[in-house]
Amino acid sequence: MLLRLGSLIFAFPVLILLVLYGIEMSAISDCTQLGGIYNFETAACGSEAIEQTSYYTRHSGLVNGMMLLSVVGALAMSLGMLIKGMANNKART
């Protein structure tokens, strides 16, 4: 149970971040193909040059929170493996 839950908690934050990043990259690609310049502050296509910032800089709370949740999932998986291993070891003796 803990192993499965930990696996889900470990994987979902990363998948969510990848989807959100992919959506933004798709909007940027569409904008540049139309000959515009993507404005990261307004999330709109424009014509004036603006400073480009990384995804992490703009969404640091989201990225940090998701990575922390992923670490919690990894710890839950590890604990689940330890508990499962100890239960299997007791059954053998």
Rank of each mutant, 00 (worst) to 15 (best):
L17S: 04
N88V: 06
I83F: 11
L62H: 05
M66G: 02
M81R: 11
L20G: 04
I83A: 14
G73M: 00
A49K: 13
M81T: 00
S70C: 04
E24K: 07
I23Q: 09
F12A: 11
L68H: 06
V72T: 04
V63C: 07
R58D: 05
C45N: 06
S29W: 09
S54P: 01
L17Q: 06
G65M: 04
V71P: 03
G61D: 10
A49Q: 11
C45A: 06
N88I: 09
G35H: 03
G46E: 13
I50E: 07
D30F: 10
V19T: 12
T57K: 13
I16C: 12
L79Y: 09
G22I: 05
G73P: 07
T42R: 10
M67Q: 03
S26A: 12
Y21N: 13
I23G: 05
E24H: 00
N39W: 08
N88E: 14
N88T: 07
L20N: 08
L2M: 13
F40M: 07
S7W: 02
M67S: 05
L3A: 02
L69A: 14
I16D: 07
G22K: 06
G85L: 01
E48A: 12
T42D: 12
G36N: 03
A44D: 10
Y21C: 04
Y21G: 14
N64R: 10
A76Y: 01
I37H: 11
G85K: 07
H59I: 02
A27S: 15
L20R: 10
Y38D: 00
S70D: 03
T57E: 12
F40E: 08
N39E: 01
L17G: 03
N64Q: 05
C45K: 04
G85S: 08
N89Q: 14
G22Q: 08
I23K: 08
L8G: 10
R92W: 05
I50A: 08
L15W: 04
A44K: 15
L75H: 01
I9H: 02
M1D: 13
A91P: 04
